[in-house]
């Protein structure tokens, strides 16, 4: 089976190489490689003509950029726990934060008020989001909630649904 190695210049190669530096092997294998494989597959099978190929590339580069942003927060539980428990991964986190320094520093000379406002508003929005989520926990369905439901019991609909709802909220 043919595979992409670090020296190959196939579509998505730079994303793959960057991901291997930034994320754990588990995250790269679970998130980045399948995405790049589909990117390459779409280019191989459906993209005919330079304009179409450019459109496919742009769409995928945007998708891969999004994936890079969310990857630290949505990896497998094991990968996340490894990231939280190792000094090496914590250093990677600081590296990500450092990306913001030149961004704000370069904007300061012409956008002083805006930059300061961005800090304040960003902190406010983060606090508001956290407060909202604390008061509105995610609603999910659990097998215990489902097994508590007894379908087809005439005359007990209210009681049955109350059981179901309680189980869902508890989850």
């Amino acid at each position: 089976m043919i595979d992409v190695k670090s020296g190959d210049w196939s579509p998505g190669f730079l994303f793959l190489r960057g991901a291997e530096r930034l994320f754990t092997d588990e995250t790269v294998a679970a998130l980045i490689r399948p995405a790049i494989a589909d990117f390459q597959g779409e280019l191989r099978e459906t993209a005919v003509g330079p304009a179409r190929r450019l459109a496919v590339r742009c769409r995928w580069y945007w998708a891969l950029t999004t994936l890079f942003v969310i990857a630290p927060f949505t990896g497998t539980d094991r990968a996340l726990s490894e990231r939280a428990s190792t000094r090496e991964q914590a250093d990677d986190g600081w590296l990500m934060l450092l990306f913001y320094v030149p961004l704000f520093a370069s904007a300061w000379w012409c956008l002083q008020q805006f930059t300061a406002a961005a800090f304040v508003v960003g902190a406010g929005v983060a606090w508001a989001l956290r407060a909202w989520h604390d008061r509105h926990p995610a609603v999910v369905v659990t097998l215990s909630g489902i097994t508590a439901v007894q379908p087809g019991r005439a005359g007990e609909r209210n009681g049955t649904v109350a059981v179901g709802r309680r189980a869902v909220v508890e989850a």
Partner: peptide, 9 residues
């Protein structure tokens, strides 16, 4: 596209 792989993982 940007989130389906995270969901699948």
């Amino acid at each position: 596209l940007g989130t389906v792989y995270a969901t699948l993982a």
